[in-house]
């Protein structure tokens, strides 16, 4: 890779200062662990004049897990999240998702906020400057055509963060802070189905923390992903499920997906399965619903249809396995 472009590193020691510096330079970027941002910058994707380092913002790495719910600071590292027994017990899907992200050398510095805000990815985008230039660039950066769907008008780069589906399935919301104050939104509303601008953040706005409510009684959750390199890779398709079963019937079911669309999303229509038993008929309906709602495009070297099928099968396996544990 190339050397980093020149920038000024600012190291704020308060949230207000971080927001002020981000707002003062519209092209400034926030940096937490930097494990996604740094390789992108080294690939010539963007040249922000200022990087605002969030590692010294007080309280950014605080978190608490209680029976009433959890609050996880955006600066908590994935290593810490993945190794925490409280998270593993209360939010197993979140714990499994954190442990599945990249390798130990990434997780030791990569953060919750960084993974939630990870850039969308595409085989035409995550390339060197000379590769992208020789291909006429692409709609996501400097070009005017999406090579994945050249006749369309939008960018199809895929969102491939792992924490988001697990947290969405567990009903999480995100606390945001920006020049216009703070707000809290449902995590799924942080995302837009647009590979070019997949985050619904306002200029200068940051993810400060994730809040997860108390989980329904008896609810269990899990996360699975398919990837090319088993030890360290982004999900080609990832599925999180939270399931509560009462007397052999579904009391609550939440399914969220990643890797297949430009945003992580909650599977629609699952409420209709409440009261049903987890049997072959239900699993077939689940599989079909996933196949219908995911839209993997040619953003990876793996075939889109395989990713569609794998998302569907992984969702079925998760629900079947969780139901088995419940009985």
């Amino acid at each position: 890779m190339e050397r980093l472009p020149a920038f000024e590193l600012k190291r704020p020691t308060s949230l207000a200062q971080a927001i002020e510096w981000l707002a003062a330079t519209p092209e400034a970027r926030a940096i937490a662990g930097g494990t996604d941002l740094v390789p992108n910058l080294r690939d010539g994707i963007g040249a922000p004049p200022v990087l605002v380092d969030l590692s010294r913002v007080p309280g950014f790495d605080a978190y608490e897990i209680r029976t009433a719910g959890a609050r996880i600071g955006a600066g908590v590292t994935l290593a810490r999240l993945a190794s925490d027994a409280g998270v593993a017990a209360a939010l197993p899907a979140v714990s499994a998702a954190a442990a599945s992200i990249a390798g130990p050398g990434h997780r030791s510095v990569a953060t919750v906020g960084g993974n939630l805000c990870v850039d969308t990815r595409c085989v035409y985008y995550n390339q060197s400057e000379w590769w992208r230039k020789s291909n006429g660039y692409c709609l996501k950066h400097l070009g005017d055509t999406c090579h994945v769907a050249p006749t369309g008008t939008r960018c199809h780069a895929a969102y491939q963060g792992d924490l988001a589906p697990a947290l969405i399935a567990c009903g999480a919301s995100v606390e945001l802070a920006g020049p216009r104050g703070t707000r809290t939104i449902a995590l799924e509303d942080l995302y837009r189905d647009d590979g070019l601008a997949h985050l619904a953040l306002e200029p200068g706005e940051l993810v400060v923390a994730v809040a997860v409510p108390a989980q329904p009684r008896g609810a269990m959750s899990a996360y699975r992903k398919a990837r090319a390199r088993g030890a360290i890779d982004f999900p080609l398709a990832g599925v999180a499920v939270r399931l509560a079963v009462d007397d052999g019937r579904i009391a609550a079911i939440d399914v969220a997906l990643t890797g297949t669309n430009s945003r992580p999303f909650r599977l629609a229509g699952t409420a209709a399965w409440v009261g049903r038993a987890v049997d072959d008929g239900l699993l077939a309906e689940l599989g079909k619903a996933v196949q219908k709602q995911v839209s993997p495009m040619r953003t990876t070297v793996t075939q889109s249809n395989w990713r569609r099928q794998v998302a569907s099968v992984e969702a079925q396996r998760l629900v079947r396995d969780l139901a088995k544990v419940a009985s």
Binding site: P39, A79, S108
Partner: peptide, 12 residues
């Protein structure tokens, strides 16, 4: 902690 020096800003 193990860290990848090719992704780490020295100034940090």
């Amino acid at each position: 902690r193990p860290q990848l020096s090719c992704l780490t800003l020295a100034a940090r």
